[in-house]
Design a protein around this nucleic acid. Structure first.
Lengths: 195, 195
DNA sequence: CAAATATGAAAGTAAGTACTTGCATTAAAA
DNA sequence: TTTTAATGCAAGTACTTACTTTCATATTTG
């Protein structure tokens, strides 16, 4: 099928860039070819269908593993520092996959959205990890948990909301304000959860 | 143009329902006509273009006013109760406009997204209102504000994230879990902000 | 060099899309 | 009753879209 990796990569990059901006339905194969600097026929020779292009793009999308690893050996038992690490890692990973998440959020008229929902269900997976962390911290007397599920959910949804909100803004939105948000929000949760 | 209000309403309802599910680009005028139970020609006689249909749908969309009014005379100076009222009102309004927000989030290839972004910038408007509220509460010695902008932002983004996340889930998601979240999250912020 | 492989160029296909036109029918307003 | 307005129906237009086919031209590989 494809020996020339570079051409496939150019096509996938163009696919992701355009679909993140205009959605799956709003992006034409002609535009993708133009943006990739190849002939339109070439993209069909590489991927066969438009749908396959999206699938190929999403196969580059992993994030759950990184986060799971963070919980197993990246935290040190200090609530403030751990929440900070968690928040920063979360936004780092989400930003890496920014465009793919945009595509998933926009959705499409007739696509296997099993794949698409995979990306959008981001906070749910993390909720369980964080929830377990809080319970274990509670057993050490380091935090008070009344409702660990919802406490974890609140923290994750806050970060998810921040990410989504920044997604729709002009890139003028600085890295500084993200850090400022992360620090302040972690301060809030640390004070709220500390006995 | 349109004397028969009922027909226009049926068309707009179908437009909103379908576009919320499949996006602007993924929804055809043929489908809209079918779902509305009218002939395709009729929808063009009423609205002229597909773009006009979306505009007409969005003209039913108001929320900023309700929220502004809430801040001017719906709060009583008790932090916990006020945050609770705020949160509940926010989710009530967002749920009322759920489908229009879905459409806005999905976007479209070639639409005046000035209108679309209007809906998605939800938390930004509220941030200022809440931020001012916190400052005024601080002057009464009722809360400690280190960074009112970011404290307000954290609270709004948390609720925005919760809303968006629930948007993509099966409707099985109960009203109960929303209330549970609201109560727990307000408890968290109340404890964090109380001197 | 010779043969395989990847790409471009040009043209085309079949289906869909937003939107139009002309005419007949029904129901409401005068 | 006569006129007016709203709708349905059938057909069509001009354009776009994903995808194909054929052939020529590079580039790589053996």
């Amino acid at each position: 099928m494809s020996t020339n990796q570079t051409t496939s990569d150019k096509i996938l990059k163009a696919t992701i860039d355009l679909m993140a901006e205009k959605g799956y339905d709003g992006t034409t194969t002609k535009e993708i070819a133009l943006a990739a600097g190849v002939n339109e026929v070439t993209i069909f020779r590489h991927f066969g269908t438009k749908e396959n292009m999206l699938e190929a793009a999403f196969n580059r999308f992993h994030y759950a593993n990184e986060m799971t690893k963070l919980f197993s050996d990246g935290l040190n038992g200090n609530l403030y520092e751990d929440l900070l690490t968690l928040s920063r890692t979360y936004h780092k990973i989400m930003n890496q996959n920014k465009k793919l998440i945009s595509i998933a959020l926009k959705g499409s008229s007739n696509l296997p959205n099993a794949v698409l929902q995979e990306a959008a269900r981001s906070p749910k997976h993390l909720k369980n990890l964080l929830s377990n962390y809080l319970v274990s911290m509670s057993e050490q007397g380091k935090v008070i948990v009344t409702n660990p599920q919802m406490q974890a959910m609140s923290f994750m949804w806050m970060n998810y909301g921040a990410f989504i909100s920044r997604l729709h803004e002009n890139e003028a939105n600085s890295e500084d304000s993200l850090n400022e948000f992360i620090e302040e929000s972690v301060r809030i949760f640390t004070k709220a959860l500390t006995p």
